[in-house]
């Protein structure tokens, strides 16, 4: 099972992972990010943001604008959790790719202390080469940025001691969403 291997690989590199049915997603997410401060959501997840807000989660949809936009800067400073969608996952390394496709998902996800990524179970592939092919098709003729993310931000620059949380998120949680009939 690629999902099991994905979850196992991600945990091995310091990330968190869980698997949830599509129907259960709003409830499960509310429990995951509910009490953790402001959740900023990329525009493509706007309807999910509404469901989270209904469940009492402090939630905001990120501005679509780029650098210099005051709304964006406020979001970037205040976000405790960035919630974005993943494009493709790699089972062997526990990697998830986010972007491209406009919006500021990548930037938000780089700044917030916690990053939660939603990844469709069907989007998990076996190898880096396969994932690169998916990204390549997405890129076709488009500008933008994609990031392969494998665990939380880390460093070993001080005496090779492994420290989690340098400039990027201290915590990474990938929620694998199972598509269910009905």
């Amino acid at each position: 099972m690629l999902t099991d291997l994905f979850i196992q690989s991600l945990r091995a590199c310091g990330g968190e992972a869980s698997s949830v049915g599509a129907a259960e997603l709003p409830r499960a997410l509310a429990a995951l990010v509910g009490a953790g401060g402001l959740v900023v959501v990329t525009p493509e997840l706007e309807s999910l943001a509404l469901e989270l807000a209904e469940r009492g989660v402090e939630c905001r949809v990120a501005s679509r604008l780029g650098a210099g936009d005051a709304g964006l800067e406020a979001d970037l400073r205040a976000a405790e959790v960035a919630l974005t969608r993943g494009l493709v996952g790699i089972a062997r390394s526990g990697t998830v790719a986010v972007g491209p496709g406009g919006g500021n998902g990548g930037l938000l996800a780089a700044l917030a202390p916690r990053h939660v990524v939603l990844l469709g179970e069907e989007d998990i592939v076996d190898s880096l080469a396969h994932a690169m092919q998916v990204i390549s098709e997405r890129f076709h003729g488009l500008g933008g940025e994609a990031v392969f993310i494998t665990g939380p931000s880390r460093t070993a620059d001080i005496e090779m001691l492994s420290v989690v949380g340098v400039h990027g998120p201290l915590g990474l949680h990938v929620v694998v969403v199972r598509r269910e009939a009905g």
Partner: peptide, 16 residues
Amino acid sequence: QLLTSYVSLITGVPST
């Protein structure tokens, strides 16, 4: 590492 924490692929300038 199998992969580093981040590998960024930057293609031109994102536009909105």
